[in-house]
Computed example of a mutant assay.
Amino acid sequence: MSRTRRDPREEREARRLAGSGRPRWRLDAPPTSGRLRRDPRREIDALRVAGTTRLRLDRTGRAGPLALPTIDTAAVAAPTIRIVDDPAYLVTVVPDAPGGRLAPLDRQLLGAARTLADAGGGAVLVLSFGQIDGLGAAGADRIVALDAESGDPSARAAALAIALAALQPRHMLLPESAGGGDLARRLAAKTGEALFAGAESLTARLATRPAANRRIEQRGAPPRLVTLAPDAHLPHAGAPHEARAIAAPEGRADAPHTGILSIEDLPVAADALPLAEADFVISAGNGITDFELFRALARALGATPGASRMVCDAGLMPRAAQVGASGTVLEASCYFALGISGAPQHLQGVARCEHVVAVNTDLHAAMVERAGLAIIADAQQVMPALIALLTAEGEE
């Protein structure tokens, strides 16, 4: 958008009367300048998108509301699934997979196994104790379901020993976690295999780990049994793999010598869990005024309640509930932020959370940008709506 820009000198010369000793000017002569001058306000008004409360500009030059681009579904090809029919060797993986879902460390474990398998034409075989979702996208070629009664670690170690003897994999990888690390050490003691625990770098030729309080680094060729430390390898990011289910190897395990009579999971109230151990955390920020309703929503969701620093500074939530670099750094699978804008120290506290859900009225809040799912609304109105939905779902 532009308008004519005046040139005072040119206008004066155009209005000068000829044949006069002293300068005389015509006042009725129009300006003759052809130079153009931009009008930013008129340009913004022309680019404004109608029907929105927040200022939005259409930089494409189209008039009216922005139209979503059309996608030609016929041109979108289905992802190619990679199939390894005759592998040269096997790399087995034993993920934790709590609740039948791959944890971040499990995905890193499959990424490391994929690197070892691709180095020489091998295949990745997952040994699972139950149904696990998303193994093909994570890089698994084969899946073997093993039986283990009630999660007894001795029984699981015996089942893994049978699979190790029958399949003869080149490597068996387990996560260096509370459950995976214990299982790897039981398996090493049962089979006599050398265990390379806590590998922080793993390739087909070299495995490294820190030692002596991280003052030195141990290196060597990776043995058959290896546990991988967290954040030591990237997850698989290539094409999905077949994840073909095959029969479990046959064999009879010796009766485990254990004093464990039964194993069961005892329910723990979510609000009694420390934030560092919680798997699902819901936090309140400045957008929350009714904290009784917030606690009711936390109980309905089965989530551990947390809060931002400003809420804890105001005394509305205990200091132990503070989330952030100056409070508790979370390892939760899901983080639900209500009315939290997302200060830098708070974002540091949720950096390791796998899924983040944010409710905020500000579309451009830092927490909304961090979230995988965002609801642009008032958190005070969202909370009773969620409680009503959960109540109706429980009554069905």
Score class of each variant (00 low, 15 high):
Asp279Glu: 13
Ala123Ser: 12
Val84Phe: 05
Ala392Gln: 15
Pro235Glu: 03
Arg219Tyr: 05
Ser33Met: 01
Gly238Asn: 02
Pro169Asp: 01
Leu316Val: 02
Ala184Pro: 05
Ser33Ala: 12
Arg205Ile: 00
Ala123Trp: 11
Asp147Pro: 04
Ser150Met: 11
Leu195Asn: 04
Asn213Asp: 03
Asn360Glu: 06
Leu293Tyr: 01
Ser128Leu: 00
Leu135Lys: 12
Pro104Gly: 02
Arg352Tyr: 01
Ala207Thr: 08
Thr53Asn: 10
Asp279Met: 04
Gln131Arg: 13
Ala50Lys: 10
Gly121Tyr: 07
Pro104Cys: 01
Pro65Asn: 12
Arg54Glu: 05
Ala113Asp: 06
Arg9Met: 07
Glu11Leu: 09
Gly111Cys: 11
Glu277Pro: 08
Ala388Phe: 08
Met310Asn: 09
Val323Ala: 10
Ala46Trp: 06
Ala358Phe: 14
Asp45Ser: 09
Ile288Phe: 04
Phe291Trp: 11
Ala166Glu: 12
Arg35Gln: 05
Gly372Ile: 07
Glu395Met: 10
Gly287Phe: 08
Arg295Asn: 14
Ala207Arg: 14
His257Val: 11
Ala247His: 05
Ala113Gly: 07
Glu393Cys: 00
Gly192Glu: 08
Ala221Lys: 10
Ile81Gln: 10
Gly259Arg: 12
Ile263Leu: 15
Phe336Lys: 09
Ile71Lys: 12
Gly120Phe: 02
Phe336Gln: 05
Ala239Pro: 03
Glu250Gln: 15
Asp254Gln: 15
Glu354Cys: 01
Met310Ser: 11
Asp254Tyr: 06
Ala159Leu: 12
Gly121Leu: 07
Met383Tyr: 03
Ala248Ile: 00
Ala243Ser: 12
Ala119Ser: 13
Asp182Val: 02
Leu338Lys: 04
Ala67Gly: 02
Asp152Phe: 13
Arg6Val: 00
Thr115Arg: 15
Ala332Pro: 06
Glu217Asn: 01
Ala74Arg: 03
Asp182Gln: 13
Val226Phe: 08
Arg299His: 14
Asp231Gly: 02
Glu250Val: 10
Pro153Val: 02
Ile375Arg: 09
Leu187Gly: 10
Ala103Ser: 15
Pro274Ile: 00
Leu386Gln: 06
Arg42Phe: 09
Asp45Ala: 14
Ala14Tyr: 08
Met310Lys: 09
Arg156Glu: 15
Ala103Met: 02
Arg114Ala: 13
Gly180Lys: 10
Asp265Gln: 13
Arg22Cys: 04
Ser201Ile: 00
Met172Leu: 15
Ala253His: 08
Glu43Ala: 14
Gly99Tyr: 10
Ile387Gln: 12
Ser128Ala: 04
Asp28Leu: 04
Gly139Ala: 00
Ala204Leu: 05
Ala158Thr: 03
Val359Ile: 11
Ala166Ile: 00
